Amino acid sequence: MADRRRINGPVGTTLPPIFDRPSPPRDRVENPENAIRKIFLKTGVTPSASGSAYLELESPNMTSPSNTSLKLTCTVHGPRALPRSAPFSPHIILTTHVKYAPFATKQRRGYLRDSSERDLGVHLETALRGAIIADRWPKSGADIIVTIIEGDQDRNAPENQRDDCWDMMNVLSGCITVASAAIADAGIDCVDTVAGGVAALVAKDATSSPSIVLDPAVADYHKIHAACCIAYLPTRDEVTNIWFKGQLPGADVMLYNNMVERALIACRNANRVVVTALKKTINAEQEAS
């Protein structure tokens, strides 16, 4: 039996990735605070899977490639019939599996999933369930496997630096985006392409006042007070999952709403990359046929 979780190498030659920054509307071009890091997204990277995708974020400091970056790969297996012994289900059953590679972070990861990886899997399943038309495949199942090749951490940070796992927000956002592209590549019907986005309340140094930024690179800021990760369906204008972490000064509701609105901007920017990657895949298949 073939190992469905093994990442197979490319069949042919490979080329270095070319990052594609999503083009924001004209009223946001001159505002760098509304921009996210450059994203490289490609579908169909694993021929043995029903659908697959690879996502990579540009390192904020290109002169030091060992700094923070994010590399994810996702494979989708299914839909396929459930065993006869399984109870009847009127909708498709999703199984999400998120796993860090042992070398993905500064501290080496184990081969068994820990609590943080299980939490990422639960959030990913919630985000995707709102996008898939589940009643199209009764008594069927689909496995969505996301492998984190490189986490969004600063590998040059000192050992005594406190780690509050803020990088998990960017990891979850990338997992949602790459899984959405892989699901579309597998031909599973969805109401819309779901995309992930992150907004955070950060302080650039010890003396500056906190401000809200999009797609924060943890290594670039002195402190992160709070962060919000959202899974969003742009066409339907619906939110399928929200994960908020941290504390806002004075429990300011207006500040929370502002963070959510900024996270939605990041989701719209990431969705443009997903749509562009899927269009390129369709055009390539049409040219090949």
Rank of each mutant, 00 (worst) to 15 (best):
L248M: 12
D237F: 07
A131K: 05
S140R: 12
K99A: 09
T126A: 14
V122S: 14
R129T: 15
S173V: 05
W243K: 04
T276V: 00
S52N: 09
D205W: 08
L248N: 12
A182Q: 09
R6Y: 10
S209M: 10
K204Y: 07
L72C: 12
A49V: 02
F103C: 11
S173F: 02
V76D: 02
R236A: 13
V171Y: 01
V11H: 04
I7N: 06
M169P: 00
H77G: 01
R28H: 07
P65D: 05
T235C: 08
A270V: 03
T68Y: 01
N61H: 11
P60T: 10
H91W: 01
N160E: 13
S48C: 06
A266L: 04
A131T: 12
V218K: 03
P17Y: 07
Y100T: 00
N61E: 10
S50M: 02
C228T: 15
L124N: 04
L278N: 01
V198Q: 02
T46L: 14
T276M: 03
F244P: 03
I7G: 03
K280P: 00
H225T: 03
A2T: 12
A231I: 10
R262T: 12
W243Y: 04
T75Q: 14
C229W: 03
P90A: 10
R37C: 08
I188F: 03
I92D: 00
D3N: 15
T177D: 04
R26C: 01
R26M: 07
A142T: 15
S115E: 15
S211P: 00
L233D: 09
D237L: 09
R268G: 07
D27F: 11
N160F: 13
S48M: 10
T96E: 08
V98K: 00
D167H: 15
I18M: 08
G9P: 00
I282K: 09
V239M: 14
P24K: 06
T43I: 02
P83I: 02
A134K: 12
T63C: 07
S59G: 15
V29Y: 05
I188D: 01
D20A: 05
S116V: 05
L278K: 04
A53M: 06
